[in-house]
Computed example of a mutant assay.
Amino acid sequence: MSVERLKRFQGCLVGVAVGDALGMPVEGMSREDIKRLYGVLREMVDGFRPAGNITDDTMQTLALAESIAELGEFNADDAIRRLLNWYRTDPFGIGIHTSRVMELIDRGVNWREAVERVERLYRPWTAGNGSLMRCSPIALRYCRDIVGLVEFSRASSLLTHANPLCQDACAFFNAVLARVLLGWDKKDAISFAMEVLAHASHEVIDRVQEAIHKSPDEVPTSGFVLDTLECAIWAWWQHDDFEEGLVAVVNLGGDTDTNAAVAGALLGAQYGLDAIPQRWREKVRWRDDTTVVDKCVNLATRLYELAMNE
Rank of each mutant, 00 (worst) to 15 (best):
H97T: 09
F92T: 06
E218G: 03
F192W: 15
A139M: 13
D20N: 13
I54P: 05
A189S: 14
E305Y: 12
G130T: 08
A211F: 02
T291G: 10
E43H: 13
E210M: 05
R81Y: 03
P50Y: 06
D255H: 11
N174A: 04
V150R: 09
E310K: 13
R123C: 05
G264P: 02
W237S: 06
L266R: 00
G47F: 10
C135T: 07
V219S: 06
I233H: 10
I146S: 11
P220C: 02
M102H: 08
L158I: 07
G223K: 09
F172L: 01
N110Q: 12
M44T: 00
I105V: 15
S191L: 14
G130A: 09
P137L: 13
R82V: 09
I54R: 04
I138A: 11
R42K: 12
A175G: 09
A307M: 09
A155L: 15
T55G: 04
C166R: 10
I138W: 12
I34C: 10
R281S: 08
E27A: 03
P216Q: 09
L306R: 07
I190F: 12
V292E: 07
R31T: 01
E116S: 15
T228Q: 07
W234R: 02
G93K: 14
S157P: 13
L246P: 02
G245Y: 07
G47D: 09
F224W: 13
D168R: 06
K295N: 11
L83S: 11
Y87N: 07
R107C: 04
I205Y: 00
T301R: 11
L13Y: 08
Y271S: 01
L177A: 04
A171C: 09
K186T: 08
F74A: 01
D274N: 14
G95H: 14
C231H: 02
A51P: 06
S201G: 10
I146A: 08
Q278L: 11
L182M: 15
N85S: 13
A200W: 02
E66M: 11
N110L: 12
D217G: 15
R42A: 02
K214M: 14
R123Y: 10
I94T: 00
S156D: 07
A79N: 04
H199F: 10
V247F: 12
C143M: 12
A248D: 05
R49G: 01
L273V: 02
R134T: 03
D90Q: 14
G268H: 05
N85P: 00
A265I: 00
G23I: 02
L37C: 10
H213N: 09
F224L: 08
D289Y: 11
V249P: 08
C135G: 00
A139L: 14
H97F: 04
G253K: 01
L299T: 01
R88A: 00
A193N: 06
R82I: 11
K214V: 00
S201E: 02
S222K: 13
K7C: 04
R141S: 06
S153L: 03
R42P: 00
V292R: 01
M59C: 11
E116C: 12
R123A: 10
F172P: 00
L41M: 06
